[in-house]
């Protein structure tokens, strides 16, 4: 029977070796993973803004499209991205901003794109969510997201905010909620409105 000291020593050496190995691996892959994360963000911004790009484009191609068409700006305490086509006359077609907030199970994050009037939604994407697959998780589907295009972010009396609820698509600032995902929809509405209020008040 080997002693306690040996057992502790063994655990210590094994643990340290594994940790060192993984640290080295992580150091080595960090630049690649960062580049992937950046490309993912760029892809989401381009999708929300409906900037045309080739399907299945590589990370570098996406970055090229992004750098050619999109300009990063500060607006109050928000970072926004303005879309003015490379072959246009410098006119801003649309802007996109980040929104985030707690979902039902975990953080939900995404991009909201507005037309140049800053009152009409152009599109939106979610790049992080852990909602229930098949219910709240349906927020990432085209069916749900495409409802937002063309909707106003203010109601008839010019009050900022959108509505996500059953039958909401009849409102100028509303879309249909997902059945069985009321909690997720409420929370998505809250986080969108937080961003929308900021945009409207920062005029």
């Amino acid at each position: 029977m080997k002693g306690n000291v040996y057992t502790l020593l063994y655990a210590f050496v094994l643990g340290t070796t594994c940790a060192l190995l993984l640290t080295a691996a992580s150091q080595f892959t960090t630049p690649y993973r960062d580049a992937n994360a950046k490309a993912e963000e760029v892809l989401n911004i381009l999708t929300a803004l409906k900037v045309p790009f080739e399907e299945g484009a590589s990370s570098e191609e996406l970055l090229n499209v992004f750098n050619g068409n999109i300009e990063e700006k500060q607006r109050g305490d928000m970072t926004i991205y303005e879309y003015s086509p490379a072959n246009g006359n410098g006119e801003v077609l649309a802007v996109v901003m980040r929104f985030a907030g707690p979902g039902l199970w975990g953080p939900v994050k995404g991009f909201l794109a507005l037309e140049s009037d800053l009152r009409t939604i152009r599109g939106l994407t979610f790049y992080e969510q852990e909602e229930t697959p098949g219910l709240g998780g349906e927020i990432v589907t085209d069916d749900f997201r495409s409802q937002f295009a063309g909707k106003s972010i203010v109601d008839e009396s010019n009050k900022a905010g959108i509505v996500i609820r059953g039958g909401g698509n009849k409102l100028i600032n509303g879309v249909d909620a997902i059945s069985g995902a009321t909690m997720t929809c409420d929370k998505v509405q809250q986080m969108l409105n937080k961003a929308i209020v900021k945009i409207v008040e920062n005029e």
Binding site: L22, S26, T29, Y32, R33, N36
Partner: peptide, 17 residues
């Protein structure tokens, strides 16, 4: 510990490449 090391290693490579 050994298994986890290999799994994380593979995961990192997958995330990178």
């Amino acid at each position: 510990a050994i298994i986890a090391t290999f799994v994380i290693l593979f995961d990192q490579l997958l995330k990178a490449f």
